[in-house]
Amino acid sequence: MSEGSSDTTSGHAVGDPESRDTHGVSGWIRQRTRLTEENRYAYKLILPAIAMMFIIHFVPIVWGFAISFMELDALYIARWTEAPFTGLSNYTRVLDPATIVGQRYWFSLRQTLIFTVGSVGGAYVLGLITALILNRGFRGSKVARTLILLPWISPIVVVLLTWRMMLLSDTGIINHLLQTAGIIDEPILWLLGSKTIISVTLTNVWIYFPWATIMLFAGLKSIPNQLYEAASIDGAGRWGKFRYVTLPQLKPVSAVVVLLMVLWSMINFTVPFVLTGGGSGRHGEVLMLFIYNYAFQNYEFGLGAAMSVALFLVAMVLAMVYYRKVIDDSFGGGIGG
């Protein structure tokens, strides 16, 4: 940073008088030089972030892409540079439902889909309901807002282990409550077999909905009151106001909330990993977990990379389409603007 400060001192010497004189040709030229000086300064400020992102994000991604075209297994892990290039064979193996890995890949993809749609849908609806109620602003609503956020602040691993304990089939409180209430007769195996994905999804709804609540609540606060008054004059009831004022006005915030939750869910590792105790068979094994288990247990790193690349591409395409369609419309430039 020492380099930066010496430069900015000289920049300041030039920069000071010109901030007053912005008229005429000379002012215009000075403005131009000032811009580039500002740019140089801006680049210096983002340089450390860029450098780190380059090493930890960019290089490994390119590397990962490269590995996905190699047959990198236990034989070659110590001398990975010598692993043979096999073209697209990793991809064809993964995408072919006839192979064992392909069959499991497609199964995990469906699990990921259930997990993502379920988590985002559940968290959004629950978050919206909570935000709407909190927005009514009664006594104690501020306290309620704070309490709602506690699940999101608690350490995830800790709450996941708590949920795991609650979901145990024999001693867990959830089965006990359901049985006492007479909803079920036999204890349900929440963490084994086909119910696992439901448990993982529900737990994730619990983790995400407080965040959705607070985002949507802020969105509700920013809706001008006149719109509701106008709707009242037009004779709109409670439902009419919600349908024709609240929902359309919430669209920009909703777009961000849904996009981020979709991306977070698709690449979520912690929730399924900890809740299922590292994986309890194929059920509940979303792609991230499957890739992790498959690649690192069988030393099939080439295959693992190919599956990760596929997941990354899906996430990116999804985000780009969505970004263009929804967020650009609402923000006119989004995060970059």
Partner: peptide
């Protein structure tokens, strides 16, 4: 714009993709 896109892009990287290269 590119920098902003890169920031958003990092949120979509599956951890398992960069775990082994790392």
């Amino acid at each position: 714009q590119l920098f902003g896109g890169a920031i958003l892009g990092t949120q979509m990287i599956p951890g398992v993709l960069i775990l082994l290269p790392m």
